[in-house]
């Protein structure tokens, strides 16, 4: 249940934001974070930003997810 994923914040309006990852955009509530700006990488859990990540760390994690996706896809195709 405690799943959370890194996403990039692409819009902010008060405490309502939109975050993007892998081509998917979702609304994200920003009430649980102090200061965020457009372009920040955030960890999203159940529609809320719960932590900020450095761009480098976020991209590393996203790359791992992509590799897992790729590995799963090739497993399915085998």
């Amino acid at each position: 249940m405690c799943l959370a994923v890194p996403m990039k914040l692409i819009s902010i309006e008060g405490t309502a934001g939109i975050a993007e990852q892998g081509g998917v955009s979702i609304p994200v509530n920003l009430m649980l974070m102090e200061t965020l700006k457009i372009g920040d990488y955030i960890i999203v859990h159940a529609g809320f930003a719960i932590q900020k990540m450095s761009e480098e760390e976020a991209l590393e994690t996203i790359e791992i997810y992509r590799e897992c996706y790729q590995a799963q896809t090739s497993d399915t195709n085998e």
Binding site: I18, G23, S74
Partner: peptide
């Protein structure tokens, strides 16, 4: 939630290159 599952654009995953390294 109208945005959920609504794929705006799809970027294909980058080729796996370092699984063996891992």
């Amino acid at each position: 939630m109208k945005f959920i599952g609504n794929v705006i654009k799809h970027k294909p995953p980058t080729p796996m290159n370092n699984t063996f390294h891992i």
